[in-house]
């Protein structure tokens, strides 16, 4: 990923900044400008909100065949996580062996290195999750 493209999403990736619809109150991640439920009524009312970072695993897999920038972590666990606010995201699960991971398991966000743009390039940081 190119540096400017990563940089402009730092707030989402470092701090789980999403949106909350001022009309219906639903949470979204990443940030959105339009609520898919309220449409026009939500425009201008999608407020930035920091998500708590705790949730549970909806589904997961252990990745054996990874893109080269991610292969140092092989085999690693990828999961869809539902945060307590009701929004879902995709993240790695770290600090536990793949055998320990279960659907429904409680997890919490942590700060890790995601990838780097080669040996000379910038380093990309962001959330991964670990057992709560």
């Amino acid at each position: 990923m190119n540096m400017p493209r990563f940089w402009r999403e730092i707030q989402g990736r470092y701090n789980l900044i999403g949106s909350r619809c001022g009309n219906c109150g639903d949470y979204f991640f990443p940030k959105r400008d339009i609520c898919p439920k309220c449409h026009r009524k939500s425009i201008g009312k999608m407020d930035a909100v920091k998500l708590g970072g705790s949730g549970k695993i909806v589904s997961y897999t252990v990745v054996h065949d990874a893109h080269p920038e991610y292969s140092d972590m092989k085999p690693y666990v990828m999961a869809i996580i539902e945060l307590d606010e009701g929004v879902r995201l995709t993240s790695q699960i770290v600090d536990c062996s793949p055998e320990e991971v279960r659907t429904g398991m409680r997890v919490r966000a942590t700060f890790r290195k995601l990838a780097e743009d080669g040996k000379e390039g910038v380093i990309f940081y962001g959330y991964k999750f670990r057992p709560e």
Binding site: M1, E9, T61, D65
Partner: peptide, 30 residues
């Protein structure tokens, strides 16, 4: 494989280590 994977969300799936196959794997497990 990386190009084929460009059909998934590069900003919120791929960058976190997801591959095309890994997303199918999560559908399969579910």
């Amino acid at each position: 494989n990386a190009v084929q994977g460009m059909a998934i969300d590069q900003e919120w799936e791929t960058v976190f280590g997801a591959t095309y196959a890994s997303l199918h794997a999560m559908m399969a497990r579910a």
